[in-house]
Simulated scan of single mutants.
Amino acid sequence: MENSKKVVPIWEKVTLTLEEAAAYSNVGVNRLREMTNDPRCKYVIWCGNKRLIKRKEFEKFISENVEM
């Protein structure tokens, strides 16, 4: 049997893992983890213990801020 898992490009995903978000934004995984620990963070979603980044909201955050 062959593995038929489809690979979706990062720019088409709705949510990203910390590693994908780091590669996509050039922001380090540790910095992203620190930023998303804030309960007011608007671009993080939790699935149990798994932390996912809402790509579009994250892009908006980056475009509206001059420092992180």
Rank of each mutant, 00 (worst) to 15 (best):
N3L: 04
A23V: 05
K5I: 10
V44T: 04
W46D: 12
V14Q: 14
C41Q: 09
R33A: 11
N3R: 03
V29W: 00
K42W: 06
E20R: 02
T15A: 10
V27D: 04
G28Q: 06
N3W: 00
E19N: 15
R40C: 11
C41K: 08
A22K: 03
I10N: 10
L18C: 04
P9M: 12
N30A: 01
V7Y: 04
P39R: 14
A22Q: 08
V14A: 11
I10D: 11
K42D: 07
I10Y: 15
V14W: 13
G28M: 03
C41G: 04
I45E: 12
M35W: 03
S25H: 02
K13E: 06
N26C: 12
N3V: 08
T15Y: 12
L18Q: 02
C47K: 05
T15W: 10
C41Y: 10
L16C: 05
C41W: 10
Y24N: 04
W46E: 09
K13N: 02
C41V: 12
W11T: 09
K5D: 04
W11G: 03
K5Q: 08
K13A: 03
S25L: 01
W11P: 03
N26T: 11
Y43S: 03
A21P: 05
V8S: 08
G48S: 05
G28V: 05
W11E: 12
A23R: 11
T15G: 07
